[in-house]
Amino acid sequence: MLVEIARDPEARLRDIAERIGITERAVQMIVSDLYTAGYLNRERVGRRNRYSLDLDLHFRYPTESGLPVRLLIGIFTDHDLEP
């Protein structure tokens, strides 16, 4: 989910669901969880949302807790994600 949002911050949740092969409702739940945990922010632009990631937060899982999300995003994206 983080990678898809990094690739296209203005993507509709429906489009993300299609790309990763899960339901739109599941995407909504994951985005809500990521928002609550501080991994992403939402900004309303017209009738759509624009998402931004906090790439300096660390993963929640104990084995990766010392690593920032930036490392994962950097592996899977080609463009500069600096704000």
Results as ranks from 00 to 15, higher is better:
residue 11 A to E: 08
residue 46 G to P: 15
residue 10 E to R: 03
residue 73 I to Q: 04
residue 53 L to S: 13
residue 77 T to H: 05
residue 61 Y to M: 07
residue 74 G to P: 10
residue 58 H to L: 09
residue 10 E to Q: 01
residue 43 E to N: 01
residue 50 R to S: 02
residue 47 R to D: 04
residue 24 E to A: 03
residue 46 G to T: 12
residue 64 E to M: 15
residue 44 R to H: 05
residue 83 P to L: 06
residue 52 S to W: 10
residue 52 S to R: 11
residue 52 S to Y: 12
residue 78 D to F: 13
residue 59 F to Q: 01
residue 7 R to I: 08
residue 3 V to P: 00
residue 61 Y to N: 11
residue 33 D to T: 11
residue 79 H to P: 00
residue 36 T to L: 10
residue 69 V to E: 03
residue 77 T to D: 05
residue 12 R to I: 09
residue 63 T to N: 14
residue 31 V to I: 14
residue 47 R to V: 10
residue 17 A to K: 03
residue 38 G to I: 14
residue 81 L to S: 08
residue 20 I to C: 14
residue 62 P to T: 03
residue 77 T to S: 08
residue 71 L to W: 11
residue 74 G to I: 05
residue 1 M to R: 01
residue 22 I to G: 04
residue 27 V to E: 01
residue 30 I to R: 14
residue 77 T to P: 00
residue 52 S to P: 15
residue 66 G to P: 04
residue 38 G to M: 12
residue 2 L to K: 06
residue 54 D to K: 15
residue 47 R to A: 12
residue 69 V to L: 13
residue 56 D to K: 00
residue 66 G to T: 04
residue 58 H to F: 13
residue 4 E to L: 13
residue 45 V to Q: 05
residue 30 I to W: 02
residue 73 I to H: 03
residue 72 L to C: 09
residue 63 T to Y: 11
residue 70 R to C: 03
residue 62 P to S: 07
residue 6 A to S: 04
residue 53 L to E: 08
residue 41 N to Q: 13
residue 52 S to D: 04
residue 42 R to G: 00
residue 30 I to P: 00
